[in-house]
């Protein structure tokens, strides 16, 4: 479960980093690093405990359940990225529609 949370955190941070850069292309990429580096450090902090080295026999079901959570988390994060991307496109199109002049030449902002 801990691993799943770490994967979610990392994927979420990477997704937000990409969109941060997309939304503000003029800004220096230093801001991206300030988000991405803590994300990577989540994995850098990982330590191997004896229980992780040798999985208990009864842990097969638990292991498959953990894998299921991990896969779900990855799929959710992918959707989060795609959803955010769609939302931003939708917002930009709406803005463009509002700024377009109508047939009579009105409505342009």
């Amino acid at each position: 479960m801990k691993r799943a949370i770490k994967i979610i955190t990392l994927c979420a941070l990477i997704t937000f980093t990409i969109f941060w850069q997309t939304m503000s292309p003029g800004r220096p990429s230093r801001s991206c690093c300030t988000i991405a580096v803590p994300g990577l450090s989540v994995f850098a902090q990982e330590t191997v405990t004896p229980s992780q080295v040798a999985l208990p026999d009864m842990g097969r079901t638990a292991e498959s359940s953990t894998v299921l959570y991990q896969v779900m988390a990855v799929v959710l994060v992918i959707w989060l990225g795609l959803g955010l991307f769609l939302f931003l496109i939708d917002r930009r199109i709406t803005r463009l529609e509002q700024s377009m002049p109508d047939k009579q030449g009105n409505g342009s902002k």
């Binding site: 498959s64 894998v67 299921l68 959570y69 896969v71 779900m72 799929v75 959710l76 959707w79 959803g83 769609l86 939302f87």
Partner: peptide, 25 residues
């Protein structure tokens, strides 16, 4: 509604629905 429906589908598919008898997860 897609912003809610799709995560709901993902959660239902992975957590709510049972695995198939022979194919598993």
């Amino acid at each position: 509604i897609i912003y809610v429906a799709m995560p709901l589908t993902i959660v239902m598919a992975f957590l709510w629905a049972p695995p198939a008898a022979l194919l598993g997860d």
